[in-house]
Nucleic acid binder design. Sequence first.
DNA 1: ACCTGAACACCGTTCAAGT
DNA 2: ACCTGAACACCGTTCAAGT
Lengths: 226, 226
Amino acid sequence: MAKKASAASKGQRREESLSREQIIQAAIALLDESGEEGLTFRALSERLATGSGAIYWHVANKSDLMTAACDELIGKAMREASLAGTPQENICLLGLLMFDAIDAHPWVGSALMYAPHQSPMLHIVERIGQQLKAMGVPRAKHWLSASTLLNYILGVGGRNAANGQHARAHGLNRTDALDAIATAWTQLDPEEYSFVRSLATQLRSHDDRKDFAAGIGLILKGISPN
Amino acid sequence: MAKKASAASKGQRREESLSREQIIQAAIALLDESGEEGLTFRALSERLATGSGAIYWHVANKSDLMTAACDELIGKAMREASLAGTPQENICLLGLLMFDAIDAHPWVGSALMYAPHQSPMLHIVERIGQQLKAMGVPRAKHWLSASTLLNYILGVGGRNAANGQHARAHGLNRTDALDAIATAWTQLDPEEYSFVRSLATQLRSHDDRKDFAAGIGLILKGISPN
DNA sequence: ACCTGAACACCGTTCAAGT
DNA sequence: ACCTGAACACCGTTCAAGT
């Protein structure tokens, strides 16, 4: 009682011991609130009311922590995916689950990028691979098909992460950010950049999520034997 | 003369003034030698025999410098590409030029990733776009086709960068690194990860460059109308 | 077993002061 | 106009010392 009161009066120290799970949840919250650069061991230890060194008892280092936070979201999404449609539809759905996770948590995009063979990525490969088998893709094309899809998803994710970070750093919303880029494109040399210039209007009006799904569709069409 | 002698005797100060170009070249050298984390303003200013603050007169900040270094290599490769084949072949060649640049300078992969709308990327989009037009891709599909290819290239590049960084950090060569991953895959739960496990042997023997080209081919096949 | 928190070895960036 | 280099406000990580 006396102990509790003194802890409460300080308002700082925790009662129960830390757990890896708590640390991961706090890291996710911090990343969501303030992006990749918001996750520091100092901010994290303050939020967890503990010393900065204590975190290292449960987590190897920052990259381990980022990967674990990423896997928490991706692994959950992949496990919970209900695959009721055709294999093609299912792959598209798995991709969109990834897209939505990255869209809601932009830092996931770069965490994925920098942990290309870790557990979050394995969850994705496995689920997609099962659907490729269901599609009847021959064994010899498993590797190519899976890695093409993966590389594409990784690319979109990384770009989303970069866009999110850029927008946050400059305090821009999506429309303003796109507007700035489109304007810059319009001012390019017409001789040298005619194609890029012609994309400016589509840049302003495009829908990232629809484009992502359409890109998956394009790749699936290329994978199919006909 | 007296000035020159004293500078030479110190062996440190430069004679002519710094230029942005010199800084970029030194940055590239540093990045090639010791990776992304090798590029610091302290190391750079030492190499250039100047003060760390001097660099900021020619370069806005670290990210500006990385983008400029990236553009130096990518822009050059894109400008010099001789496009003598069919549009499909040319797109594949452009992609391979990118792949080779990133393979020789892994940091380019992440520089590209974190500057998705900067000048290096514009060079690529423009060249690829011209070939898409030559393929007869209708205007309405320009955006989708270009961004799918770009996202794929970006994904491969980012993964290459991550692999390179991982290998350097752990002092592994390619074979050892792949071996470690393949072994880890083999030890996964057969129930939960049957597909990933089945890829382990292909992981050991695959050829990144060939796979990359094949992936481009897959996407091109999806883009073609037939 | 688990936690503390000062200390270490760094960063990128700024800026008064110099030439 | 261009450069200096100390100073600022941070990092991730370690580790002796505590409980």
